[in-house]
Computed example of a mutant assay.
Amino acid sequence: MMEPRNRVVRLRRFGGPEELEVADAPLPTAGRGEVRVRVLASSLNYTDVLIRRHLYPQTARRQPPFVLGYDVVGCIDQLGDGVKDFQLGDRVADMTVLGSNAVYRTLRAARLTRVPAGLDAARAATLILSWMTAYQLLHRAARVQRGQRVLVHGAAGAVGQALLALGRLAGLELWGAARSEHMALIRELGATPIDYQHEDFTRVLPGGFDIVFDGIGEDGYRRSFAALKHGGLLCAIGYSAGVQAQRGMSGILMWIARLYLWGWLPGGKRARFYSINLMRALHPAWFREDLERLFELSATGAIRPRVAERISFDEVAEAHRRLEAGGLVGKLVLCPDLPLRRDGAARAEV
């Protein structure tokens, strides 16, 4: 019987999408306490762009070449010694940060979450980073209460859409800031749209918002802080404005440090920077519990994560260009089982 072939998406050096290559790689072997999975889906995230451009603090010390891939849904095809809670053929999920844009990879069994039977692998993959970030922001970081007034920046993005969908389930009164072409989408998600290019969000709600979720960081988060009511909370989740302004790693770290200091300022307002990796390190049980909850919500149709397109290995570099250009309504998901696309036909969906 022929040995399975492994292929990976490797970053040769920090830079643009042209630095990505699809390469053959050795087939990994599960060690003690590990499983090997055949990858079914691995979503492409804007965070992958930051890693590729050397702008992501959590991977700042890693030097290329290395394999990209922040999350994974896979089918177990090999068990390492000491693994008792899983069987061959089980479908599992994990947040890996690196290494999952591959056909095969190994994973630590203790970190895995089961994927329910019948839940589409690509849709499950969309939940691991973006929807988990949104869920933990709402219920772990901000601890939202029904009826609170909440502003979401970047509301048409992956995390923004998840915040609106999950916020509506939590009974929040929601506003979503986005480009004018996304106003209908924001309404569809149950929020009051704000065209951030033409409206001043600091004046939308007299008295201010209870909570602002900001993944943009425009003007160093100052305007978001100003939009809060007395006692309000700013939850920062990113810094895409700094990335677009071509700030380097030192500038990004300065933004994060400033936000931590703001948490000590007088005036009754608070600020907090959320990191999904730090949250998982501090509370590992929460990650599995929250991901299981998201899988359940998706399986029952309570939430509907959007897959913009399923892509094959030959489309990854172009997918990174699309991520950087912005405007995607759903997730691009790498599905290694897809054949190379030679006819130019799209695989778009909703």
Rank of each mutant, 00 (worst) to 15 (best):
A60P: 09
Q87L: 12
L119T: 02
A319D: 03
P193S: 07
H54Q: 14
S298M: 03
G99F: 07
A60N: 11
I311K: 00
I194S: 07
T133V: 05
G268A: 15
P266F: 00
S312V: 04
Y104S: 03
F209M: 01
Y239E: 05
T300Y: 01
I252T: 10
R7S: 11
L233Y: 02
V307L: 05
E19R: 11
F201R: 07
L340R: 06
L185Q: 14
V212G: 04
W255I: 13
G89P: 15
R91S: 14
G16C: 13
A162P: 05
G154C: 06
I311L: 10
R91P: 12
E3V: 07
G118I: 08
R108W: 03
V67R: 07
G208T: 04
R10V: 07
I237E: 11
G31F: 01
I194E: 03
H198M: 01
V115I: 13
R140W: 14
V22T: 08
V22I: 09
G232P: 08
L138Y: 02
V159W: 07
C235L: 15
P4Q: 05
A141M: 13
A158H: 04
P4Y: 14
S100Y: 05
R272C: 09
T96P: 12
Q197V: 09
G74R: 01
V316L: 15
G15T: 10
P57A: 12
Y56P: 03
L334R: 00
E21F: 12
